[in-house]
Design a protein around this nucleic acid. Structure first.
Lengths: 186, 186
DNA sequence: GTGTTATGATATACGATATATCATAACACA
DNA sequence: TGTGTTATGATATATCGTATATCATAACAC
């Protein structure tokens, strides 16, 4: 556990907050680095002392969400209670709307979420590693599970959340999670 | 059926071919408009007489694929033969590798494929409109179906096509298509 | 208090997009 | 084949966003 200069933490926090605020206002792609530094009230050149580009800053923001999800889903088993798992997911999104909107807004969600997905897929791989008989290769199933859930959340946000988290959790369980589970012991 | 100046068709064809070739070499995001015009051997300013930006050119290329898929899948029913449907899909991708790689490479696949997906979702909506009892709203199911299939193809290409089109078709049917179908008469 | 380090400000270079203009060449059609 | 029309190429130019170098200052850790 290294000690980090307070100025560094402060600057990075300001930049992250500015990115979130600006992305909510006009979309990730329309935000320029100059705007971010102006909103954060830090020097333009300072940005590059911390991040090589805008995407790197977003990845930093993203990691917060990844940790949250990890802590949220850890105590539950996706195999025995898929509906609960789905509901928890959508409840988290509802309670962290701003953050989730930002992370799912950037047009290349797929690329940006890759680090998160890879970790998620590893965890899913662990969960299902016990299953002996598989119709579908583990790697395909894990990738599909993560990707589809993210895309379903995306759909929900883009369509102004027309259904409750509970309902969306059920949908996720029926349409995505259970089919994957069943493919492992059929 | 309007008659279009041969020069226009020629220029647009050259630009499309140049974009495909360059994207295969270095990825969509790295290609500049200047490079496209140089490769196509047309004036730089000419580009903007046809397309407002790089994405518009890609959408033009994209439409070719959309028509192909439509013609390919038209004669079959996704409800009665999901495995065949899946296999046809992956066979088409295998036989049109260059084109598909280009279209799925650009980082914001989701945004760019939206016009294609919307049309696909309408068609899917038609197919399932007969089903009376639904556990899952039609719009959610249609969006999930299209998105997940595209993402599965993406995974297949990014991982150097480790399984045959037939195998991938089975996976698609089991993991994506059949669960959607079953949600409509449960 | 002292050496260290992050910051702000300024200047600057670069690359890519985008538009205006005009002479030329290719076109459609009679 | 001749004629009016239109797309093109070449050049110049404006704008914007990214990225780096430099140096004095202020905040930091100890």
């Amino acid at each position: 556990m290294e000690k980090i200069d307070r100025r560094i933490k402060r600057t990075q926090r300001l930049l992250q907050e500015a990115l979130v605020a600006l992305t909510l206002e006009k979309g990730f792609d329309e935000v320029t680095i100059r705007e971010i530094t102006e909103r954060a009230d830090v020097g333009y050149t300072t940005f590059f002392r911390h991040y090589p580009d805008k995407e790197a800053l977003l990845v930093d923001v993203l990691d917060t969400m990844r940790q949250d999800f990890h802590n949220l889903l850890m105590p539950h088993s996706i195999i025995t209670e898929p509906e609960t798992m789905g509901e928890l997911l959508f409840e988290y999104v509802e309670q962290n709307l701003d953050l989730c909107r930002v992370l799912l807004d950037s047009t290349d969600t797929i690329t940006l979420l890759r680090p998160v997905q890879e970790i998620g897929q590893q965890e899913i791989g662990m969960m299902f590693s016990a299953a002996q008989e598989r119709e579908i290769p583990l790697e395909v199933a894990a990738s599909h599970l993560m990707t589809s859930l993210v895309m379903l959340i995306r759909w929900w946000l883009e369509n102004d959340m027309p259904y409750s988290p509970r309902k969306m959790g059920e949908i996720a369980a029926k349409m995505i999670i259970r089919p994957v589970i069943e493919s492992f012991h059929a």
